[in-house]
Amino acid sequence: MKKKYLLIILGLSFNCAFSQVGVNTPNPRGILHTDGQKDNPASGSSFTSAQQLNDVLITNTGRVGAGTHSPAVKTDARNSGNGAVGFGTSSLTATAADEGAVRYNTGMEYSNGNEWLPMLTAQPAVNKVIVIAAKTDNKVKLVSPSAAVTTGLQNRQSNYLVEWSKTFESNSGSTFNASTGVFTAPRNGVYVASFTTDLAPLAINYTADPLNPIQIEAIWQLYDNTAGVLAANIVNTVKCVNTMSSNSNGNIDAGSNCTASFYMTAGQRLMPYIWFNLNSLNTAGFSLNNTGGYNNLTIAEQ
């Protein structure tokens, strides 16, 4: 019985004395230290770069060093020799792999938690959406996108711009409806939208009123992902305003531009319109300057 107790005590003493484990070395420098070539010194703390090159160790802070005894990060393979790190392919989805995972798939990719992105370009595997369109007529919908199409813009009214001519669209060609002027986000992301308008020359002669300044506004309006176009469906509105002189001696152009960035969730809708207060007329008879390419729209996914 005394011999059994003695063996237990000796075993415990051995574990306490050798809390660091060395493989091929009696001089471990971490909790677990493997000396691949068995070329480390038997004692001391001085190791050459060549001796460290074939070592792998785990420190008491949970860091892993491959080819170095002083890992600066969780996994550190930097050394003066072959410090390459290899990654294999993975069939896991980006969601399952979770944010921050890395894989090789005909190029290095990382997961942002939703999709695998190429490491070098940080772009999604799908093509980014780019829309370019021009407007060469005077068709609008007054006040609401649900209203009937009319020919001619109206003073002091919300003129939704419809009937665009799409000149380019990447990624399926269906995110922008040129007829309705509605852009629908295909997925969550940031979209930069810009459009420019120019009214045909007109006389600006509305009496100055501080509550109704003489101006023209280019406006982007963001709707939710339903089919509704009521005020309750509006998510965000961005207005870009150009003010005008109180009166003009002759007809002049009045134009505006609006560029804005929107975070859109899949299915949300973006639409451009203009509002102006330039003279005393309230007829739906104002025209855009349809020559010279003044009326253009661009939407680009970031």
Rank of each mutant, 00 (worst) to 15 (best):
I8Q: 05
I9M: 12
L10G: 07
L10S: 09
G11I: 08
S13E: 06
S13K: 07
F14P: 01
F14I: 13
C16L: 14
A17F: 12
F18D: 02
Q20W: 13
Q20M: 09
N24H: 09
T25W: 04
P26Q: 03
N27M: 05
P28Q: 12
P28D: 03
R29P: 00
G30M: 08
H33W: 14
T34I: 11
D35N: 10
G36P: 02
K38R: 14
P41W: 11
A42N: 15
S43A: 15
S43W: 14
S45K: 14
T48F: 13
T48R: 07
A50P: 00
Q52E: 13
D55H: 07
D55I: 03
D55W: 07
I58G: 01
T59D: 07
T59H: 10
R63W: 00
T68V: 03
T68Q: 04
S70G: 03
S70N: 10
A72V: 10
K74C: 02
D76Y: 12
A77H: 07
N82T: 06
N82L: 02
F87S: 08
G88A: 12
G88Y: 03
S90Q: 04
S91I: 09
S91N: 15
S91H: 10
T93F: 03
T93L: 05
E99F: 13
E99V: 13
A101R: 09
V102Q: 00
V102C: 05
R103F: 08
T106D: 05
M108L: 15
N114S: 13
E115Y: 07
E115G: 03
E115N: 04
E115I: 03
E115V: 10
W116A: 01
W116C: 02
L117P: 06
P118D: 08
L120K: 11
T121S: 15
T121N: 11
A122F: 14
Q123P: 02
P124E: 04
